[in-house]
Design a protein around this nucleic acid. Sequence first.
RNA 1: GCCCAGGUGGCGAAAUCGGUAGACGCAAGGGACUUAAAAUCCCUCGGCAUAUGCCGUGCCGGUUCGAGUCCGGCCCUGGGCACCA
Length: 817
Amino acid sequence: MESQYNPQQIELDAQHYWEKNQTFKAKEDPLKEKYYCLSMFPYPSGSLHVGHVRNYTIGDVISRFQRMLGKNVLQPIGWDAFGLPAENAAIKNKVPPAQWTDQNIQHMGRQLRRLGFGYDWDREMSTCKPEYYHWEQWFFIKLYEKGLVYKKNALVNWDPVDNTVLANEQVIDGRGWRSNAKVERREIPQWFLKITAYADQLLNDLDTLTGWPAQVKTMQRNWIGRSEGALVHFQVADMADTLQVFTTRPDTLFGVTYLAIAPEHPLATLVAAKNPSLKGFLAECQTGKVAEADLATIEKRGIDSGLRAIHPISNELIPIWITNYVLMDYGSGAIMAVPAHDQRDFEFAKKYQLPIRQVVARSLTDLSFDIDKQPFIEKGVLINSNHFDGLAYAEARDAILQQLLKDNKGEKQVQWRLRDWGVSRQRYWGTPIPIIYCDACGTVPVPEKDLPIILPESIEFDGVGSPLKKMPEYYNTTCPNCQGAAVRETDTFDTFMESSWYYARFACPDQSMKMFDERVDYWAPVDQYIGGIEHAILHLLYARFFHKAMRDLKLVQTDEPFLRLLSQGMVLKDGAKMSKSIGNTVDPEDLIAQYGADTVRLFVMFAASPEQSLEWSDSGVDGAYRFLKRLWHMVFQQVQQKPTQQELLAPTPAQKDFRRLCHETIQKVTDDIGRRQTFNTAIASMMELLNAIYIFAASPHHNAALTQEALQALLLMLSPITPHITHALMYALGHSEAIVNLPWPTVDVGALAKDTLKFVVQINGKMRAEITAPAHADNKDLEHLALNDENVQRHIGEKEIQRVIIIAKKLINIVIK
RNA sequence: GCCCAGGUGGCGAAAUCGGUAGACGCAAGGGACUUAAAAUCCCUCGGCAUAUGCCGUGCCGGUUCGAGUCCGGCCCUGGGCACCA
């Protein structure tokens, strides 16, 4: 064994061993319990950043840990290869997106290998390859056949100078990022997936996901947003139209003083045609971004449409306003406004001097509330509501609903916040949508036998619109039905489509005849999924939806794709998310060159618990490196000793303490890695154990067999985190089997026993002393011992003792007057 | 604006179910070894006092024998808001 730790050499040796022995090649074995561990696959942006290292190290630690517990582990890796950055790079560097993406995959693949992650590289796949997106196109057609796909108009950001649809990210302060032109909201036809058909399942099944963080489930619940209420029909005066308005507060129906409709609402378009001032207002509403965050923060504005609606019970005429804060995409694009009992409506009514009519009060007699100052949001008793006056919230709600039902002017309704998923993108670098348009036959899905529709890769890319729209050789085709001339859809899929099913495809990436084969039944679902908290809603919801849709097509057998979820925090630098666009990334390659992969892995795992966001700083890496050097040195020292394997017949108290610490550490590290997934505290405990080994080795009680036991346990526990150095050191300690094939250490319960326990003694909750008591002492003994303490006596003095609270194995609190 | 997190020493953090606040590490200061440096090892390290005390976990208030942890109200930072991935 070398006396010096040389990470570069030993890391190559270990990696060579794993490769040569195909250590991480996963084979289906019905006799072994499987464990599928997956970190969210990367977008090949160019090179790895620290966030990737964190993500993939967590996955590797869990995979290697489960392997040591005897599971048949699958840990695959692939590339989420379609996306916008490749198009940007294509414009900037005049290189086709496919070529740019492939280069990045090559480079990042090398970086992942250098970090020593235990992937089954034979399953590597890229979503931009036809072998992959073939089955996405096939699945889309299956959904189409099931009626889960439809086309409708939807809003996009339109750059009127570049004549291009812009992503929200490409709109900066309301202007196109390249043209600097004011962005307009424009409606275009787009394909949608009916995720709302699964809304109830997506909501209810969250309760079965016991391995998911509560925070993520709450976010999804709120996003899906189930609410119960009423759909109220407001007849438009002097017109045939009816406005269908959803409300969660039917009890406030008599407080409605105006209705508000979205600028894109058909009624708005209709009346604006004859009214120039309305037309002007609608045009103003059309500028700006389509993102909800922008719509929610803009100044609320509106204009009286001149139309009137008839109140469904009182028959009063109510003005219909066109406003910029009602979303056409949400519900019916129209709302009823009750300024007296809703904050937003109140503010709008104040601004435009619309009437505010209080219809709910704390009681019939308590009318002290000043409705002119602020809205009354609470539930209460109805007033000013005809014959409904005096009814409390629940009765009022039911009575009004009954009346609406009777008159055929409303019904009970469950409303969801979740909207259908628009999957069309007016971009080149994505999966072609397998649809053909024929003048004679209409919309025709591409037949299975003609799949995949291959995206042409050698193209000219100028940034103005999709190149596919300028390629007749691509879009001109024949109709599968009538064989007449027809054109292809030139839009491509949202890239969330690829990431919604890749986890299942990893079970059989080489299957060329179908989407999945029987191997998916062995590996799915994913036992542990790891990824950034920024994916808590969209990606995870879409993947859950796909999984359920695949289940209903008998492609998978389970209800949910991911059993346990670890949402890792963001890696921040200078207080902001690390990203290439901000330019604050840290390249892990420099750190690997200086310290080796083990130090980088160790430090990233040590710096914070995985769910916390991590403010990146290079300082501290030295500490991780120093720890590994100390570990190397201690094993080197131990190897010179020739330890006796003989057990100690009469260990000294110091030797018992040392062995207890060793087994307490095994217990804690097992719990920290397996249950808590707090790798940072596991590492801290292992550092404490190494510190204790140093002290023990230098003490007169030193025993080589005990040190050997502790060092072996330490190497085994460290091996998921720093697999290379532990590979070398376990051989050095005299093992002939590679550490990667050895089992996780077990706790000797006998070693944990203690003769005495330490108690903190408090007086009125303040710590005043620490006492040592025999392990078997009862509460009386403990109270006696505590009261006998000199410092405790001094603090009690002449005062009267009221209570003594004893918390087992921990604490004694004496309450005095 | 709405939803979800977080705020603890000079710094990264820990405190798992309401029970010793600051484990573990970084930086810094002091010392040992060395011709010297690096490396390594030892000691100190929240603030104020100076023997066993007081204060201290974003701010204000509450519950409790006891609050970083629970409750109410604020402030600030981060993530998401459906076309970044």
